[in-house]
């Protein structure tokens, strides 16, 4: 980065009729009131200062007041995602099916990574759909502020609304895929069980994890937007090491590497999804506790991190 040049590139000459030609001499227009007088006047008139970060409690209340905006933005954007083609919303179901088909062809038939799994199709389907939700939510969440800069520059609302609505949009877009999942699982031979109901809570924990990551990335990308290009790369890497299409314990054993791979947030979300839906994987405290801890730590930590940047969004 070069230091700002002091030379003024003036492409226009100063207006000839300007009184006392301030522009020509380049001096500041004198303030009608001193900064201290302005602050005093603003305080006595009860005005709020612009471009400063609101207090944490105040911020939470503002977000709550704008909850309807989150919902309407998300549902409208989710609906708009698939409206530009003839089959419309049907693609929300067709796309994940095509994805499962192609992954099965590559990993189930050609590369044979089905080791350690009893029902590979169910294993693969849960992995693809659950990971797919995280991947799309994180990629879109990273650009939550920069992609909506027009909205940011036109309307004033707590900016945390943006990562929240982007995450919710991706959840809504993915819901049909989860519907397909719940139909496919019994077709692959999994017996019905009461713990299928836990797939709902698993989805809630996953959403909190995704939202937390989106909060972190949205602020980072807004400050240094080149980083947005790295997000898809990291997601791709995560897709290959998180156990989407192979069993981590079968291929990586039980050592420290396996533990790291198993308990990172994106792998944990798939583990609890499989424990909820598949007979082969009994419910374990460790995975659900890990998911819960990640959800709280990332969700709350992300919100605080994002809030600390409030007041600066839109300046770039």
């Amino acid at each position: 980065m070069s230091s700002p040049s002091t030379e003024t590139l003036s492409l226009t000459e100063p207006p000839a009729g300007a009184p006392a030609s301030d522009a020509a001499t380049g001096r500041h227009t004198p303030s009608p009131l001193s900064p201290e007088e302005c602050a005093e006047l603003a305080r006595s008139a009860g005005l709020s200062e612009l471009g400063v970060r609101p207090h944490r409690r105040h911020y939470l209340r503002e977000i709550w007041e704008f909850r309807h905006l989150v919902w309407h933005l998300s549902s409208a954007q989710a609906y708009a995602t698939n409206q530009n083609n003839h089959l419309g919303q049907l693609w929300a179901v067709i796309n994940p099916l095509l994805l499962v088909g192609s992954y099965y062809l590559i990993f189930g038939v050609l590369l044979k990574t089905r080791g350690g799994t009893e029902n590979y199709i169910a294993f693969l389907t849960v992995g693809i759909f659950v990971f797919g939700y995280s991947a799309s939510a994180i990629i879109a969440g990273a650009r939550a502020v920069t992609a909506n800069i027009g909205l940011v520059r036109a309307l004033r609302f707590p900016r945390a609304i943006l990562p929240m609505s982007v995450t919710l949009t991706q959840l809504l877009v993915t819901l049909p895929a989860f519907g397909v999942l719940l139909v496919m699982i019994p077709l692959t031979g999994e017996p019905f069980s009461w713990h299928w109901l836990l797939f709902g809570p698993a989805l809630v924990l996953q959403t909190a994890i995704n939202l937390g990551i989106a909060f972190f990335l949205a602020r980072i990308v807004n400050a240094a937007r080149d980083t947005a290009n790295l997000v898809p790369v990291v997601i791709r890497l995560a897709r290959y090491v998180s156990g989407v299409f192979f069993s981590i314990t079968h291929y990586a054993g039980h050592g420290i590497v396996s533990m790291l791979l198993l308990y990172q947030p994106l792998a944990v979300t798939m583990t609890i999804g499989r424990e909820a839906l598949m007979d082969q994987y009994p419910l374990t405290w460790s995975s659900w506790a890990a998911a819960g801890i990640w959800a709280v730590v990332l969700g709350a930590g992300g919100l605080v991190f994002f809030w600390r940047g409030e007041g600066r969004y839109g300046s770039d």
Partner: peptide, 23 residues
């Protein structure tokens, strides 16, 4: 909508901006 880089600004209530480009 754009934070100040220097100086300060205050306003009453919630201003509504209506621009040709207001997205």
């Amino acid at each position: 909508l754009i934070p100040p880089s220097g100086g300060r600004a205050w306003a009453a209530g919630r201003p509504a901006l209506l621009g040709v480009n207001a997205v």
